[in-house]
Design a protein around this nucleic acid. Structure first.
Lengths: 333, 333
DNA sequence: CTGTTAGCGCTTTCAG
DNA sequence: CTGAAAGCGCTAACAG
């Protein structure tokens, strides 16, 4: 049962008194010197009058295209990916494309239907925060990788995480910190490797700088334990650099359990600047990563790729946002 | 340029030595006594061998269907809707359906393409946390409403928010609280109206129960101010009931600014149980709303509706989760 | 400058 | 029990 039967291009042709192909040319925007301006206007008016919208299924069949792209993300429960989707979907919609999200690796089993999972019918892939082997099994499908290793085969849109980390260390060093602790996400993603390397390099470049590292899952409880391990060391760090805002929340808990004041006794920083950052007390000094723009730029690049272009690598700078969780280290008498 | 040219049903027919229509019947599962079991098996094997997947565009064109449903949400930046999408998409994928998200009302302008926005080509709508008039302009399209007023025309899947609120008040009353403050979301949504009514009723039913109310945007700073207003009253509340976990984070800030200990001087509760609830210190007593299941049940209902059925109203219970943010009120001497 | 025509891959009568 | 044929709405050759 078709939904509400909508006008077809034949109806428009009839209304305008022309042939179907003329309608197609005009509405497809390819009438440069092939259709008279007067006719074109007539067609457009007829289409308008009838409220004509082309049938996507028919276009897709004819063009061998689906006007659908897949956004691959590692999870949707993390607050970071909602905005990425929003940005991607916004740009896609502007070009008549839909976006389906695919969580990978997937916890759920395979589809229990005789028909294909939706990712069997896509024109392109936007893969966020993935290793390159995520695209295995999709060989031949145009893809753009987001927040991923730019050394891979696909074009990328990334954040300037290394610069962000350097800014963070410069900020803390300027306050007088020298002993740093890294509450590191134990997740094998490019972005976290870069964060770790940039942090290590920046601290090493600092006269008298020392860095200890403790790993945890991206989850508050695990982060609290990792932070506690760092703080239990002899000569504990005066600043905890966390790979993610949520980890910083765990660090706050560890500090509070030890009776340490943030930022009086301990400075804490996050990364990403999600909603949580301002929900915490004190508000979190962090590096803002423009997630929605990542999605938007990624989709722009993918559409360019689908159009036969070769998008250039794009780096979106992260911006240091100083709030109340960082301050000068307490002088130990 | 079609992506990788895939085998068609004609290829399968040839491989199996039968006609295209036979393939269609077998693979469509409608061969009950119309095709011999032997032939059917042959067709299936041929399809398997070739790795055949039916072309959705052709199916859609023929059937006048799109196998796409639209999920309408008020925003994607709130952490609540990611899981809703996940649940909906999981069920949809199991039936060969894709899900496109549509944020409404939309901040962005109209599409800048001559072609339809994707929501022009959908089989059904799943509208979450919306007023019924969100479906205006989609008259005729089957729809299921999520977390919305069940009095509307469409089938609904909702949370038992009223029961959850009653449990919360019972918990607080059991601890000894009588003076309540409601940090209320100033958002015109069914769920918040129900929360407010249930809270008011539960407090009114309590001997000596009093309730003050203060509204705010769903945002930590605004919530902090609303909570501060409540706490500045003569005879301030001993428990702050917040419409949302994020609002509770704001309440924490207000308490801390006044030097009040949570839960020693002030009990605070949230609603939803998002990630934030355990990131706060102390961890938040709240009502868990199974967001992913909301999406899954909603999609199940919508598919039933699309199949000609009439899904029954479904209520998913919320569960009180007691953590560290609630305790007995301090006795004022 | 405009119309005619073929066909994308599939489902579904209708004959055999 | 199986095959032949039509047509969903659209686009792109190719004629005129």
């Amino acid at each position: 049962m078709p939904a509400t039967s909508r006008p077809t291009s034949r109806d428009v042709a009839q209304e305008a008194g022309v042939s179907q192909s003329t309608v197609s040319l005009v509405l497809g925007g390819k009438w440069a010197g092939r259709v008279s301006p007067a006719t074109a206007r007539g067609v457009r008016e007829a289409a308008e009058r009838l409220g004509y919208r082309p049938n996507q299924a028919a276009r897709n069949l004819r063009l061998g295209t689906t006007r659908t792209v897949m956004l691959m993300v590692p999870t949707l429960t993390a607050p970071f990916f909602g905005p990425v989707y929003t940005g991607a979907a916004r740009v896609a919609a502007g070009h008549g494309f839909g976006v389906v999200v695919h969580v990978w690796p997937d916890d759920a089993g395979p589809a229990d239907s005789p028909f294909a999972a939706p990712h069997e019918a896509i024109d392109g892939i936007l893969a966020s925060s993935m290793a390159v082997d995520a695209l295995a099994g999709f060989r031949g499908t145009p893809a753009v990788m987001l927040d991923s290793d730019p050394a891979g085969p696909a074009p990328t849109v990334e954040f300037g995480v290394a610069d962000g980390m350097r800014d963070l260390v410069a900020h803390l060093a300027g306050l007088g910190h020298r002993r740093f602790g890294h509450v590191a996400a134990a997740v094998d993603q490019w972005t976290f490797r870069v964060r770790a390397e940039a942090l290590a390099a920046a601290v090493a470049a600092l006269p008298g700088g020392v860095l200890a590292r403790s790993e945890c899952a991206i989850e508050a409880t695990s982060a609290r334990e990792a932070a506690a391990r760092l703080l239990a060391r002899p000569d504990p760090p005066t600043a905890l650099v966390c790979d993610d805002d949520l980890l910083a929340a765990g660090a706050y808990k560890a500090a509070r359990a030890l009776g340490l004041d943030v930022p009086g006794d301990l400075s804490v920083t996050g990364f990403d600047d999600v909603l949580l950052a301002t929900a915490l007390e004190p508000e979190l000094t962090t590096v803002r990563l423009p997630a929605e723009e990542l999605g938007a730029r990624g989709m722009t690049a993918l559409l360019e790729l689908l159009g036969g272009g070769r998008p250039r690598r794009c780096v979106l700078p992260g911006r240091l946002v100083v709030r109340g969780s960082t301050g000068p280290p307490r002088i130990v008498l």
